[in-house]
């Protein structure tokens, strides 16, 4: 028996919004420790890794490890049927071929349940090595989303250059070029507005704008985003999900032909 309850549907709706543009389907691996989803996008250029910890759920029971393959488009449709302040319970029997989403209104007067067929997904699971990154940038997630949107107008690719002075985002194409420089915040009054750079070595890497823009769909989950970079390895874009866990996107850098 698997049962996981959250007192508020909003967070689950935001999580689905953050992954459904990149992934059509995914396997949710459920265990005592929580729920994990790891999946590559269709073109296998990026990887999404979602971790939700069991102790942050309002109720969590997982008698046996369970892998549930879900169509994320269908799951998003079902979650749209929940009001933001509804309690959500996800339930499945052991070895079941369906999962049930139950929504309960705050006054307990409306209860709805939606059953969804599970899928058998033959997905590759990739091992992500522990890496000490040369540069780690923390910045407001809205600012990152804005920069990705603005620079995508100029080129398919964006160069991110990080030094101890700051981080520079650049794009150039037939229309012209764009550069946005952010200096490290000197005086942190509000932590969520700060730009903080931890640098061991300067890094310059090039990434496809369309994936970065897809990652910014997670912006409503967290005020801050963390970018971790080292030469010649995938970028990590991480959004924390309050005390529940995190979503990390990995993106392979472009390399010169």
């Amino acid at each position: 028996m698997f049962e996981a309850r959250l007192m508020n549907a909003t967070i689950l709706k935001k999580i689905l919004d953050a992954v459904k543009d990149l992934l059509n389907e995914g396997t949710f691996d459920c265990s005592d420790s929580g729920i994990q989803l790891q999946a590559m996008d269709n073109s296998h250029v990026s990887l999404v890794s979602l971790t939700l910890r069991s102790d942050s759920f309002d109720k969590f029971r997982c008698d046996r490890n369970l892998s549930m393959g879900m169509n994320l488009g269908t799951m998003a449709k079902i979650l749209k049927c929940a009001n933001n302040d509804d309690t959500v319970t996800i339930k499945a029997q052991d070895n079941a071929d369906t999962v049930t989403f139950m929504f309960e209104s705050q006054n307990h007067e409306k209860v709805s349940d939606y059953e969804m067929k599970l899928m058998n997904l033959d997905q590759e699971h990739l091992g992500i090595p522990d890496t000490d990154y040369s540069c780690v940038v923390r910045m407001p997630s809205m600012e990152f989303a804005r920069i990705c949107r603005d620079l995508a107008q100029f080129s398919e690719s964006m160069v991110i250059c990080c030094t101890k002075e700051g981080v520079k985002f650049s794009a150039s194409g037939d229309l012209g070029s764009a550069n946005v420089k952010l200096a490290q915040t000197s005086n942190v009054d509000k932590e969520e507005e700060a730009v903080i750079i931890e640098m061991q070595e300067p890094v310059t890497l090039t990434f496809a704008c369309r994936y970065l823009n897809a990652f910014t769909k997670a912006t409503p989950l967290c005020n801050q985003v963390q970018l971790s970079m080292s030469a010649d390895v995938p970028l990590v874009v991480e959004y924390r999900i309050s005390d529940l866990g995190h979503i990390r996107y990995y993106l392979a850098p472009k390399i010169e032909e």
């Binding site: 296998h44 990739l126 091992g127 390895v233 990995y250 392979a252 472009k254």
Partner: peptide, 12 residues
């Protein structure tokens, strides 16, 4: 050139 993510991370 755009490499795949699997060229960086090995299969588990």
């Amino acid at each position: 050139m755009q490499p795949t993510i699997a060229s960086f991370f090995k299969k588990d």
